[in-house]
Amino acid sequence: MMSYWDHLAQKVIEGYQLSDNEALTILNSPDEELLQLLNGAYQIRKYYYGNKVKLNMIINTKSGACSENCGYCSQSRDSTAPIEKYRMMDKDSIVMGAERAHRLKSGTYCIVASGRGPTNRELQTVTTAVKEIKEKFDMKICACLGILSPEQAKELKKAGVDRYNHNINTSENHHDNITTSHSYEDRVHTVKKAKSAGISPCSGIIVGMKETKKDVVQMAKSLRELDADSIPVNFLHAIDGTLLEGTDELTPSYCLKVLALFRYINPTKEIRISGGREVNLRSLQPMGLYAANSIFIGDYLTTGGQEGTKDHQMLKDMGFEVDYEIAESTV
């Protein structure tokens, strides 16, 4: 007999959009129904993506000394976390990172830099590196450099950047509890600028920052409205020295319900299990891929990740296939 979650999944595949109450039902579902919920999410995931998993790798090209006051971030102006701080890497170092990502079969290489937005010199370093990476490797390039001007977005597109990441991070209602140095609208507008320049928009969230379940539902629906092609779902890894130090609200089962929620609400999109998966999903990490179809491999910005070889073994053990995408744009 088809379960409620299988029935709801079939409706989603047919074009149905969940109500707020139905979305909350996912987050409030009893743990006894978790496998049924994930099976429903997997039916949607399989319909659009089969058994393929997209791999992404980050390089933190500029660390610390950020003027923003994001409460979750070890690089913010208010953080006292003992992290490594350095100015923008040179072009050759960024290209070397791409070579490592290519060896680990990462289809997307994510060039990230701290700060409110890139200077002209930093943008030039990135665009020069992107052009060389495009010449050497068949991989997608995602840039995450903060708030952009329309002109900067066009420069990135011209260089060959396929995707631009700028996370909304939380709901509009909860935003001011997390940061006040920029607005929720600043983030939304940056995603739209990238899209207007012809770059695929990537925008995601962080769960576990003292938001409500209604906030989580609104995050998922806001990203559907933004039409983000790729949605990184991060789980707070509270770092000592940040404003959210000591916050520990998440359980592995709740994290899985969040991933299922995002699949039900954004059925056709790349849902990526991102930062904090190792410390929050713990032994249930593999189960997240029944809802999500993408993961980060390697380290994150200022925290370590699982070894890439272990990620590959996890995918092999589960019967998933690496989806090594060929970059769509050309220089």
Results as ranks from 00 to 15, higher is better:
residue 255 C to R: 14
residue 154 K to D: 03
residue 71 G to I: 09
residue 171 S to I: 11
residue 328 E to R: 13
residue 191 V to I: 14
residue 268 T to I: 11
residue 246 G to H: 09
residue 194 A to I: 09
residue 301 L to P: 01
residue 82 P to G: 04
residue 50 G to P: 05
residue 81 A to D: 08
residue 314 M to I: 01
residue 284 L to C: 08
residue 247 T to A: 11
residue 200 S to Q: 12
residue 207 V to F: 00
residue 329 S to K: 09
residue 150 P to L: 11
residue 250 L to S: 01
residue 139 M to I: 08
residue 313 Q to L: 15
residue 136 K to W: 06
residue 102 H to K: 10
residue 23 A to H: 11
residue 118 P to R: 09
residue 267 P to W: 00
residue 26 I to A: 02
residue 22 E to Q: 10
residue 308 G to Y: 13
residue 36 Q to M: 15
residue 236 L to Q: 01
residue 116 R to F: 03
residue 168 I to A: 10
residue 151 E to I: 12
residue 66 C to G: 08
residue 128 T to Q: 05
residue 55 L to N: 02
residue 240 D to T: 15
residue 95 V to I: 07
residue 262 F to S: 14
residue 48 Y to C: 01
residue 8 L to P: 08
residue 270 E to G: 08
residue 41 A to C: 01
residue 77 R to F: 12
residue 95 V to H: 06
residue 11 K to D: 06
residue 211 E to V: 00
residue 195 K to M: 06
residue 18 L to K: 00
residue 66 C to F: 13
residue 317 D to C: 04
residue 180 T to N: 05
residue 39 N to Y: 13
residue 262 F to H: 08
residue 196 S to V: 04
residue 312 H to L: 14
residue 255 C to M: 14
residue 69 N to A: 12
residue 235 F to G: 04
residue 203 S to K: 10
residue 136 K to D: 02
residue 329 S to Q: 00
residue 206 I to H: 01
residue 246 G to W: 00
residue 94 I to A: 05
residue 62 K to N: 08
residue 234 N to L: 07
residue 188 V to C: 14
residue 311 D to V: 01
residue 102 H to E: 11
residue 67 S to K: 08
residue 215 D to M: 03
residue 269 K to C: 07
